[in-house]
Amino acid sequence: MKKSKMTIKDILSINGMGVMIAFIVLCIALAISTDSFLTAGNIMVVLRQSVWVGIISIGMTFIIATGEIDLSIGSVIGFTGMCCAAMMKNYSMNIYLAMVLTLLIGAVIGFLNAVLVSKLKIASFIATLATMQIFRGLIYVYTQGVPIFGLNYPEFQFIAQGYVGFLPVPIIIVIILTIIFWYVMYRTKYGRNVLTIGSNIDAAKLVGINVGRIKTSVYIIMGVLGAIAGMLLTARSEAAVVEAGSGYETDAIAAVVIAGTSMAGGNANLLGCLLGAVLMTTIRNGLNILKVDSSWHQVVIGIVIVLALIFDKFAHQDKE
């Protein structure tokens, strides 16, 4: 008995269909109403600007899949970006060594969050809210509000501004990360365990999953991804500014959620979250092209998120 009775309703209720449709509609609308949107140059701009949120939304998908949250990641981007800049500029460290150390710092920060959440059992919303303040604060403490400028080291610039063939390096990085983490999420025992914990934590313990260890590892992944995003951002602007990455955590959470990943944990749409990240940049980009005042950008983004969520809700209703 073959089931080929896929109704429109079934298609619409696929996770993340909301963001897909929103994205397509938006692209068509922008392509029709502007000349410059659908140019190769502009598409590249959109993709490049999606890189930072895209990278951390991968990590956010893992965190949310376990049923937790990480609000500190925007600050982590800023903090690791600053550390990297400081090591290169203020301590004249070898560029590659500085980058490796930055990844390490990201991992350590992730571990710290994990200790709060899974060892001390502080609700992740509160714990990461606190670390968000701490790391943003530390940026101010170290820089006294003065950006670290002049990071014009070719090897460093390369990761954000270079090309391999016609592809920008940061986009290659995102593609590689996506492939790796897609595989990890959907084709490894580890990924299964992550989702299983989010689905029912008590039952997960009873099938022998080490819940604490998995949660810790997920936060460490998040920290490292935050460090990668932080370096890319710093390398792009050739400076570490105090507010770097601020607000990215909400963008990443939105990207994950509009892709249909439930905040309750237990499911994940990894590719969808990247689309979500691109969607949000596209909106900003489109509004820029349309010369809409930038104060309206947040409003529009908020509305689009709500619409995507309402759509998903309706599509899923009645499945019972």
Partner: peptide
Amino acid sequence: TESIFPNREVSWNTTIAGIDHIN
């Protein structure tokens, strides 16, 4: 509360403890 992973598939629920068999 202690056995099922409610939102996950029947197949997922079947293999989760003996997952090494499909690894």
